[in-house]
Every structure is written in structure tokens, then in C-alpha cells.
Computed example of a mutant assay.
Amino acid sequence: MKQSGGEGSLRPEECAGKCEYRCSETSHKKPCLFFCKMCCAKCLCVPSGTYGHKEECPCYNNWKTKEGKPKCP
């Protein structure tokens, strides 16, 4: 069985629930959910917890903005 949170471990329909939890403690909920869902759709992975743990999802972790900042929350 794949470790939960691993790259490609989610089905697209699971992204909303995982992102809801990932963004549950931020004060910037709308942008967090927007980018988390976009990243999850591409990577089929959301890191565990509400912050950090991005090493669990290299695709999610390595996707950067034009400015070189992390795209995924």
C-alpha cells in the first residue's frame, strides 16, 4: 500500500477534501484552496498536515511561480 500523501496517491476527486484540511489553519483560505486544488490536480498529492511536509510531494514542492517562490501551499 502506498504511503498516504505520496506522489500520485490521490484520485482527482479527493483533492478538495485534502486541500480543505491543508488550508484549514490559514488566514488566506481562498488563495490557499485555489492553489492547493490546482497543485493537487497536477500532482495528485497534497502534503500531510496544514503546513510543511512538502518533501512528501516533490511535484507539489518543486512547482514555482515566475518569481521562483513556491506555487503550492
Rank of each mutant, 00 (worst) to 15 (best):
M1Q: 03
K2Q: 05
S4P: 10
G5Y: 05
G5N: 09
G5M: 10
G6S: 14
E7L: 13
E7R: 07
G8V: 11
G8P: 07
G8F: 13
S9D: 11
R11S: 13
P12T: 12
P12F: 11
E13C: 09
E13R: 10
C15F: 02
A16E: 02
G17Y: 00
G17D: 04
G17N: 02
G17T: 07
E20T: 09
Y21Q: 02
Y21K: 00
C23W: 09
C23R: 10
E25F: 13
T26W: 10
S27F: 09
H28F: 15
K30A: 14
P31L: 06
P31G: 05
C32S: 03
C32M: 03
C32T: 00
F34C: 06
F35W: 04
F35V: 09
K37W: 09
C39I: 01
C40V: 05
C40W: 09
A41W: 10
A41R: 12
A41M: 13
K42R: 15
K42T: 15
L44I: 04
C45V: 03
P47T: 05
P47L: 01
S48C: 12
S48P: 00
S48R: 13
Y51H: 05
H53C: 02
H53M: 05
K54G: 05
E55C: 09
E56Q: 14
C57N: 06
C57K: 04
C57E: 07
C57H: 03
Y60F: 06
N61A: 15
N62V: 05
W63N: 12
W63Y: 15
T65E: 13
K66H: 11
G68M: 02
K71M: 14
C72L: 00
P73D: 06
P73T: 00
P73S: 06
P73M: 08
